[in-house]
């Protein structure tokens, strides 16, 4: 049943190709009401479009409004958020500034200079996301999109071994509950050698997730790499980047999984010519992630700082610097009396 509002809705607000739209408007069909009661054959002959196109247009226009998108109340979402435990990083202080770990249904960005431990943190998340529920994990699988060729399987083995040992020793996990083979089995690595591959990989993840619904984490390491090397055309670059960002946001929300992307650092100059290190990929990219974390060395190079530069639930700068142990040894650090949040 169409109401008066929907009858006056202009046809140009529907996703109809321009060529068909201009034919429709030339024939005088401008609002939904003007075509609503026509048969496809009538529309086809009077607007001079093919019968298939006419049928498509009518299907689209007659689709009952409101079914297209569903809304949820804030209360429902809050309850969902409470059920989604974050992925612990096993670094006490990073978990602390992220309020328990890397959140599901959100995009988190980790940036930092080369060698500061971004990839290590990502690999570690691929392991910790698989921890059994009784140890505070999610028993989820991980997708690792590797653009730099930095995925290190033997490092992953070390980490997995350490993580399993930690769970058994510190949390009395029964030996048969979790083993090394299952960890490596449940990490799916996509190797993307250039931008087109990265874009197509992200676009087909939706299909991949249909058959792998246990995936709780998507890592892109690093997002910046191809964009900083391959792309000369700035407009195309931003279009592709934001297409990826939009798709990631959608996957995160629809499949309730955490998206972690790493980013490189670049030097930004202010009016006085003073250089300052900021995350790369430009200012408009900065809006996409919900959390932005920067890892940096202390001048003494004996430990690292983690800085949260963007967050929706914390005032920026309230907990800016957290000293973190060497990222490569995070699991050791967690042995020193770190209590899991759950």
């Amino acid at each position: 049943m169409a109401t008066s509002i929907t009858n006056s809705r202009p046809i140009c607000t529907y996703p109809i190709p321009m060529s068909i739209q201009s034919k429709l408007s030339k024939a005088g069909f401008l609002t939904t009401g003007s075509v609503a009661n026509l048969r496809p054959s009538e529309l086809s002959s009077s607007a001079e479009i093919s019968l298939e196109d006419a049928a498509d247009v009518l299907d689209l226009v007659r689709k009952p409004n409101g079914l297209f998108l569903e809304t949820k109340t804030a209360l429902e979402i809050l309850r969902e958020e409470q059920r989604n435990y974050p992925i612990v990083t096993m670094s006490q202080n990073i978990d602390k500034i992220l309020n328990g770990g890397v959140p599901l249904a959100k995009i988190t960005e980790i940036s930092g200079i080369a060698g500061v431990g971004k990839t290590q943190l990502c690999l570690q998340l691929c392991v910790t996301v698989q921890m059994p529920e009784e140890c505070g994990g999610l028993k989820g699988h991980a997708v690792y999109i590797d653009t730099e060729g930095s995925f290190n399987a033997s490092r992953l083995q070390d980490m997995s071994q350490a993580c399993i040992e930690h769970c058994r020793n510190a949390m009395n996990l029964a030996a048969e509950n979790w083993n090394l083979a299952s960890i490596t089995e449940n990490i799916f690595v996509f190797r993307c050698k250039e931008v087109t591959e990265l874009l197509s990989c992200v676009m087909i993840l939706k299909e991949f997730l249909k058959t792998h619904d246990q995936v709780k984490l998507i890592v892109i390491d690093s997002l910046a790499f191809h964009f900083r090397h391959d792309m000369e055309n700035a407009a195309l670059r931003s279009r592709v980047l934001h297409k990826i960002a939009a798709e990631l946001a959608r996957l995160a929300v629809e499949s309730k999984l955490a998206v972690v992307v790493t980013n490189q650092m670049t030097t930004k100059f202010d009016s006085k010519g003073q250089g300052r290190l900021t995350p790369a990929l430009g200012t408009s990219w900065g809006h996409a992630p919900t959390f932005r974390l920067i890892l940096d060395w202390d001048p003494s190079r004996s430990f690292r700082w983690a800085t949260l530069i963007k967050s929706s639930s914390l005032p920026p700068g309230s907990a800016p610097y957290q000293k973190i142990a060497r990222v490569v040894k995070l699991y050791r650090f967690s042995n020193q009396g770190y209590l899991f949040p759950y």
């Binding site: 109401t3 509002i5 929907t6 809705r9 607000t13 529907y14 996703p15 409004n65 409101g66 297209f68 998108l69 569903e70 809304t71 949820k72 109340t73 804030a74 979402i77 939009a246 946001a249 959608r250 929300v253 629809e254």
Partner: peptide
């Protein structure tokens, strides 16, 4: 408070025309 996720411009317009 009703939340709605919109992924592209057409979804936004669809939403704006919802009774």
């Amino acid at each position: 408070i009703h939340f709605c996720y919109v992924n592209d411009v057409y979804q936004l317009m669809e939403m704006l025309w919802t009774p």
